[in-house]
Computed example of a mutant assay.
Amino acid sequence: MSNDAIDLLIKRELPAAVRGDRDAYGRIVVASQNAVTAVALAITRDVPASEDIAQEAFLSAWHHLPRLKNPSSFLPWLRQITRNLAHDHLRGRRNRMLDGDAAELAIQHAADPDGCPLQQALDAERDAVAADLISELPEDSREALLLYYREGQSSKQVAMLLGLSDAAVRKRLSRARQSVREDLLARFGEFARSSAPSAAFAVGVTAALGISKPAAAAGLGIATKSIAGSLFARFALGIAGAAAGGLLGGLVAAWFARGIILDYAADEHERSALLRFSRRYIGLSLAMIVAIIATHALLRDPASTFIAISVALLAMNWQLLVILPRLMNPLLARDARQDPVGAGQRMLAYRLTWGRTGVLMSNIVVIGSLVIAHLHLA
C-alpha cells in the first residue's frame, strides 16, 4: 500500500473507529502494523516483545481515540504510545525479579528432559541474532531500516510512516549502510522481512477490541481505564476470549500434568505413545483456540462463535474420554495389580487431571467463563 493510500485510509476510517467501528480500526491496524512493530522492535530488540507492545499500543489508542482531535496526528500519537510502552518494558525487565509462576515455568523447562531442546535452542539463537543485528545499527537508523525492508524498500513510505522527510530517511539509511558490513546488512534485510507481523497480528488485535467501544463513545469512563493496562483482562471479557481463555487454562494444566501419565509407562514404547498423545492434545488445543478467535474476529456472528466453541469442546472431550483411555486403561490395570496400595493415590491424581473428573472440571471452567462473559456483556 502506498504512503498516500495509507494516509487516505486512516483519514477515511478514523471517524468510524472513534464511533466504535472495530472493522474500521482493524483496517487501520493492518495499514500501520509494520510501522508500530518496527518502532517497538528497534527499542526492545526482541521480536515477541515488540509484537506484544505493538498490540498493547493499538489497544491503548483504541480506548483513547476520542482524545484525538486531528486525524493527521494519529500516527505520531500511536508511535509515541509505542515508544513509551517499549521503554517501560525495558525498565520493567531490568527491575523485575523472576518469581511466582514465571519462576516455576523456568524451573519446569530447565528440569524437563522432554521439553524439545532443539526448538528451545533455535528460539534462543533467533532471539540472539535479532538482538545482535539490531545492535549493530546506529540507534537513530533502526526504525527506518526495519521499515525500509518491510515496506518494499521505499524511503517515501518510511518517511510517511515515521513522520520524517524523505531526505531525513535517506540520510539515516545512508548512515546505516556506511557503518554496517554489506553481508550483515543483507542478513538484516532478510531478518526485517521475516520478522514483520503476519495477518494473524491484526486479527488478534481486532479480536481484543470486542469488549467495548472507545472510552468516550461507550461512556465507560474510569472502568475502562482500569482495564486498559491489561490485554488479557480486555480480551477475556468477550465470549470468544472467555472460551479461548478456558481452553488455554486447560492446555497449561495439561502441560504441567504430563508427568502423571508418563509415570505409568513401563518402557520407551509406552512412553513415546503417551508423549505423542500429550503433544497432539496440546497442539489440538492451540488450534481450537486460534479457530475460536479467528471465527469471532472474521465472522462477527455469535452463532458461528458458539459453533466453533462447541466443536472445540467436542474435540477436546473426544481426546480425553475416548482416545486417552485406550492408551491408559491397560496401564492403570497393570499398576493396580503391581501396587494395589499406591495405585489408589496415583489413580486419584490421574482422575483429577486427565480422567473424567478432570474433564468435567475443565468443561465447567470453559462453560462458566462463557456464562460470566455473557452476563457481563448483556
Rank of each mutant, 00 (worst) to 15 (best):
G342Y: 07
A16I: 00
R91A: 14
H269L: 08
T37Y: 02
S198Y: 08
I81T: 15
S72R: 14
E143A: 10
Q119M: 14
H296T: 09
S174H: 14
L184R: 11
G20Y: 04
E268D: 15
A202L: 02
H64W: 03
E104Y: 06
L331P: 05
S195I: 05
D263K: 09
K213M: 12
A215H: 05
Q178H: 05
F188I: 06
R91E: 14
V341F: 13
P15W: 07
L78I: 08
G368P: 06
S50E: 10
A257E: 12
A202R: 01
T357C: 07
S272W: 01
D183V: 09
R177G: 02
G26Y: 02
A131I: 03
K11L: 07
P197E: 10
I261V: 15
A54G: 14
I307R: 07
G344Y: 13
P197M: 09
L237D: 12
R280M: 06
L133E: 06
R276L: 10
L85N: 04
A200K: 04
V203G: 00
S2I: 10
D7Q: 11
S50A: 15
R67C: 07
I6R: 13
G92I: 00
D140M: 02
A257I: 00
V29F: 11
L14N: 13
V203F: 02
N329Y: 07
A373V: 06
S60C: 01
A131M: 06
A294I: 11
I309D: 06
S369Q: 09
Q33P: 00
A196K: 00
S369W: 02
A297M: 08
S135T: 11
S72G: 10
A236P: 00
A233N: 05
G219E: 11
L321K: 10
E51T: 12
V311A: 12
S179G: 02
A40Y: 08
I367R: 00
V158W: 03
R181H: 13
R19G: 09
D112V: 03
I227H: 10
S135D: 13
R170H: 04
V39T: 09
A291G: 05
L247G: 04
V169G: 05
V322S: 09
L327T: 01
E104K: 11
W354R: 01
S226Y: 07
G238I: 08
A102Y: 05
L146M: 08
A333V: 10
H87E: 12
